[in-house]
């Protein structure tokens, strides 16, 4: 290394030092501690003691754990495809040069800006079985009323509905960014060749957008797996544990029952599930994600 290159490397290291320290102190370190904790039984007040894999064995036999996992999977399976489709449709609609389009984008973005607690309180009121606006509108349309938050069938879909309210948020903006990156010439060329609007969407826009769809899909699954606030504020897991989602059960174990080892084990199971999911997705990606010039994903 020349002295100049060495100086450059040193400056670079110094600049990223805050991240290095933060990563060790607030991510890697805690993850290691959490792995050790998952092998112990600890109520915080008395000393922890080693129990081996007992926490994981207990999870396997814990019906509430399976309930929480099932609810979270159901929430994810409902939320992610619907919100991806919704965000993408909205991005396609708002990717045009029409008057006032920036006002429209801001308007659709609005729900994303509101605190989840505020959104949760507003939706609790909208979905009120007796006085809520939604049931009133259903009755005006001659449709049967639904006991949204009081029914074990509808409580989880109610939370999904709340989540879908933010389809015009960051996910849509990222799609919009992707659409803006598609060269106009490709559309013009396809149009000159006589491709209809629908065919251009299917054969030009979607393939070129597939890396962005992939990005939003993977991060969307990770995010929806972590859903907590609506379940905590709106239904607090009820009725009859029908909205007991994974992180809510983890929170209860850790911070209400003070079973720190058990909660840490839950956290690690969640991490492993998400890692497995992400790994499979990256493997499958090569089949459907199109990268221009065959470049590797970056």
């Amino acid at each position: 290394m020349t002295p100049r290159a060495r100086r450059e490397a040193l400056t670079g290291f110094l600049l990223i030092l805050p991240w290095g320290l933060g990563f060790c102190a607030f991510t890697a370190g805690p993850m290691a501690i959490s792995l050790v904790l998952s092998l112990t039984k600890w109520d915080i007040l008395t000393a922890p003691h080693y129990v081996g894999l007992a926490n994981f064995a207990n999870l396997w036999h814990d019906p509430l754990f399976w309930m929480a996992l099932r609810n979270t999977l159901a929430y994810t399976v409902l939320t992610v495809p619907l919100s991806l489709a919704g965000s993408l449709t909205l991005a396609l609609l708002l990717n045009r040069r029409v008057p006032a389009v920036s006002v429209l984008r801001a308007l659709f973005y609005l729900p994303e800006l509101m605190p989840t607690v505020a959104t949760a309180i507003i939706w609790t009121w909208l979905l009120n079985t007796h006085f809520g606006l939604l049931n009133y509108l259903l009755s005006r349309l001659g449709l049967p009323q639904v006991a949204w938050l009081e029914s074990t069938t509808w409580a989880l879909p109610s939370l999904v509905l709340m989540g879908l309210w933010t389809i015009g948020g960051n996910r849509m903006l990222i799609f919009l960014a992707g659409l803006q990156g598609i060269p106009e010439e490709l559309h013009e060329a396809a149009a000159l060749d006589g491709a209809s609007r629908g065919r251009r969407l299917w054969h030009v826009t979607l393939p070129l957008l597939s890396p962005v769809i992939f990005f939003n899909f993977v991060l969307g699954v990770i995010a929806s797996f972590q859903v907590f606030t609506p379940a905590y504020i709106v239904t607090n897991g009820g009725p009859a544990d029908s909205t007991l989602v994974y992180v809510l059960y983890l929170y209860r174990n850790g911070f209400q029952y003070f079973q720190m080892g058990y909660a840490a084990a839950m956290a690690w199971v969640m991490l492993l599930l998400l890692l497995a999911f992400t790994w499979v997705q990256f493997r499958l990606m090569q089949r459907w994600v199109y990268y221009e010039g065959g470049a590797t994903p970056g």
Binding site: P30, S34, L37, Q226, G254, A263, L275
Partner: peptide
């Protein structure tokens, strides 16, 4: 891609 819940208990 690391969910914050994995670190929240040791952080606490």
């Amino acid at each position: 891609m690391i969910p914050s819940q994995v670190t929240v208990i040791p952080m606490y």
